[in-house]
Structures are given as C-alpha cells and as structure tokens.
Simulated assay, not measured.
Amino acid sequence: MGTLEIFIPIAAIITFAVIISFITRLIATSMHHRTIREAMRSDPTSVPMLVQRLEARQPWADAMLGWIFIAFTIGIALLAITDSDASDRREMLRAAIVPLIIGITVLAFTHFAGRQNADMP
C-alpha cells in the first residue's frame, strides 16, 4: 500500500470533519444572532446577557474536533496492527502520525485558550 493511498482518505476525513465543525458553528451563531434580534425587539435589557453568551464560544466544540482526530488515529493504528504485511503496517502507522499531531494540537489549543479566557475578567 502506497503512502498516497493512505493520505488521500486521511485528507478527505480531516476535511469532512473540519467542514462539519464549521457548519455547526455557523448554525449556532446564526441561531444566537436571531435570538439577539428578537430580544432587542421584545426585551432590550436581556441583550447584554445574550451577547456575552455569543462571545463565549463553546469549549467542547473545538475539543470535539481534536478528539475526532485522535479517534481516527486510533482507528488507523488498529488497522495497521492487524495488517500482515510489515511494510504496509509501517506506512499506516506513519500515516497515523498526521491526525494524531493535529488532534493533540487542537486539544492543546482549546486547553490553553480556555485557561486564558478564564484568567480574563
């Protein structure tokens, strides 16, 4: 199995996961904006609370993307372990490094960004 045969599905799954993440974030933001517009019409005093909620992003949204990459890495590693050809096994394990690094980076970013937001007044 060639390296290209491994990286094309990895790239497709990563792209799919990122697109789904952005679409869900877009839907959530549009729902918040609609709620703020309705609150401005009916009860303007509740708008500051809704704006704070809009500005405070859900920390699990980005963390979930990181966990998806790590789960994908585990799947590739398990597939590699069950392969009988040693060269294919090595190629798949090397390919599993990419989503692992991306997942760890996303989780580290959400961890440090959450800590930084908690320190702000």
Rank of each mutant, 00 (worst) to 15 (best):
M1A: 12
G2K: 03
G2Q: 09
G2S: 12
G2F: 03
T3I: 07
L4S: 10
F7L: 09
I8L: 10
P9W: 14
I10K: 05
A12W: 08
I14S: 06
I14H: 03
F16D: 09
F16M: 10
I20Y: 03
S21Y: 14
S21G: 11
I23C: 10
T24K: 07
R25L: 13
L26E: 07
I27S: 08
A28Q: 13
A28V: 11
T29Q: 09
S30Q: 04
M31C: 14
M31H: 08
H32D: 12
A39T: 15
R41F: 12
P44R: 03
S46Y: 10
S46N: 15
V47N: 02
V47I: 10
P48V: 06
P48T: 12
M49I: 05
L50S: 07
L54H: 03
E55C: 02
E55K: 03
A56M: 12
A56F: 09
R57A: 02
Q58I: 05
A61N: 08
A61T: 14
D62S: 13
D62R: 02
G66I: 03
W67T: 10
I68R: 00
F69G: 01
F69P: 00
I70Y: 11
F72H: 02
F72A: 04
G75I: 08
L79C: 09
A80I: 10
A80M: 05
I81H: 12
T82S: 15
T82P: 09
D83I: 09
D83S: 11
A86H: 11
S87V: 08
D88I: 14
R90K: 12
R90M: 15
E91Q: 14
E91Y: 07
L93M: 13
A96N: 02
V98I: 11
P99Y: 01
I101A: 10
G103Y: 01
V106S: 00
L107C: 10
L107S: 02
L107T: 02
A108L: 15
F109N: 04
F109H: 08
F109T: 07
H111Y: 09
F112L: 15
G114I: 01
R115Q: 03
A118F: 00
A118W: 01
A118Y: 00
P121Y: 04
P121W: 03
